[in-house]
């Protein structure tokens, strides 16, 4: 803890969990898509569903999707900015099973039809946890540079990926693996202490049994 944990951060009100955390969930989704979205479907659960109008959670999520940081004064007007930039937004509320009270599911679609969907929770003080990407379980905080690697469940795949990380001197601070079935689609989420460059990601993308590797910078 330091003085800036007490006097800080600079943020857009009114609530670190309902505004700052929501904006960060939007930012991660945008980073995962890696290009400009034209459509955003937002599903809100729990306290997010019940209080989003009063807290401006919808505006904060959309602001993040538009690439705005948590202290960006345009967050308040993000719905207008979305309209101007041609981003179509649908908001739905309801119940999700086994989800934290402050949870949103976002699906973004790019102009070329590429889609990404994500489930993220705002867990307090502006901190977030991404628990699903494209329906698969992950564990991501957005606080560290990370790789999300979709791959075939085959022996040696994890070793090949981590070997490249070792080669680049990237220390792993969190590793999570989920798979649909033995030999089927699997996803690794790897968080690192150090910056992961595009070169490293490109090398992983060229490995055998890798469908895609997405680099997510710290948000």
């Amino acid at each position: 803890m330091n003085v800036f944990d007490i006097l800080g951060p600079v943020m857009i009100g009114p609530s670190s969990s309902h505004t700052a955390g929501a904006a960060r969930i939007g930012l991660v989704t945008r980073a995962l898509l890696g290009k400009t979205p034209v459509k955003a479907h937002i599903f809100l659960h729990g306290s997010f569903a019940k209080t989003y109008k009063g807290h401006g959670t919808d505006k904060a999520l959309v602001a993040g999707i538009l690439g705005m940081q948590t202290d960006d004064e345009r967050i308040r007007f993000s719905l207008d900015v979305a309209k101007r930039e041609g981003l179509e937004i649908q908001i739905e509320t309801g119940e999700l099973e086994d989800a934290h009270p402050n949870t949103a599911e976002i699906t973004l679609t790019a102009e070329d039809g590429e889609k990404v969907s994500l489930r993220g929770s705002s867990i307090g003080g502006g901190n977030i946890l991404i628990t699903r990407v494209n329906g698969m379980e992950v564990s991501l905080t957005g606080q560290n540079p990370a790789l999300i690697v979709l791959h075939k469940d085959a022996p040696g795949t994890i070793a090949a990926v981590t070997e490249i990380m070792a080669e680049y001197g990237a220390n792993i601070c969190s590793f999570h693996l989920a798979r649909e079935a033995k030999g089927g689609l699997a996803v690794m989420t790897i968080e690192s202490d150090s910056c992961l460059g595009p070169d490293l990601n490109e090398k992983i993308n060229q490995l055998e049994n890798i469908y895609s590797s997405t680099l997510l910078e710290r948000v």
Binding site: L7, G8, P9, V10, M11, G13, P14, S16, T19
Partner: peptide, 21 residues
């Protein structure tokens, strides 16, 4: 009040108590 209207503030130590310090 600025906090409640989605303005830019410094959490001090929280957003709810940001006006006092």
């Amino acid at each position: 009040e600025l906090n409640a209207s989605m303005g830019r503030i410094v959490a001090a130590p929280t957003a709810g108590s940001c006006g006092i310090v």
